[in-house]
């Protein structure tokens, strides 16, 4: 019985869909999983970052330089930047895929979004490295 059900599900896929390899369990799982991994990493990183920055609210630039000059702080900052920008990119990708229906436009928007996210992320990492070294 259960086997028959499984068979009928396979039969329902159109030949075109099978050729194009559409459907779940292609790249969707990786997207989903990367989103979970980055979100788990962001739980401690966010708490650490928010309360660290709050403790320096209004402090002069020299205090920030002193803070980032510690290697552990610099490493955690870069980890936070990588995790949050990766998570952001995955999230915005879903938003664009949901709301931009025309395929060409969607491709352009996805590229523009990725370019912005990459450039901002690189600028942030470079700034941390410059402060740290």
């Amino acid at each position: 019985m259960a086997q028959n059900e499984k068979l009928s599900v396979t039969m329902r896929r159109t030949p075109l869909g099978r050729v194009k390899g559409l459907g779940s369990a292609k790249s969707g799982v990786h997207h989903w999983w990367a989103e979970r991994v980055t979100s788990v990493a962001l739980i401690p990183l966010t708490l650490w970052f928010v309360f660290s920055v709050l403790s320096m609210a209004g402090h002069p630039q020299a205090d920030i330089v002193h803070w980032v000059s510690h290697p552990l702080v610099a490493v955690l900052l870069i980890a936070l930047i990588v995790a949050s920008f990766h998570h952001t990119q995955l999230g915005l990708q879903m938003v664009l895929e949901d709301y931009v229906h025309e395929e060409g436009q969607r491709l352009i928007w996805l590229m523009v979004m990725r370019a912005i996210v990459w450039l901002l992320g690189l600028a942030a990492v470079l700034s941390v490295l410059k402060l740290a070294i």
Partner: peptide, 15 residues
């Protein structure tokens, strides 16, 4: 995040 990047870039650029 743009604000966070600005904050970091500004800190790296000087007082």
């Amino acid at each position: 995040l743009i604000l966070m990047v600005w904050w970091l870039v500004a800190a790296a650029s000087g007082p």
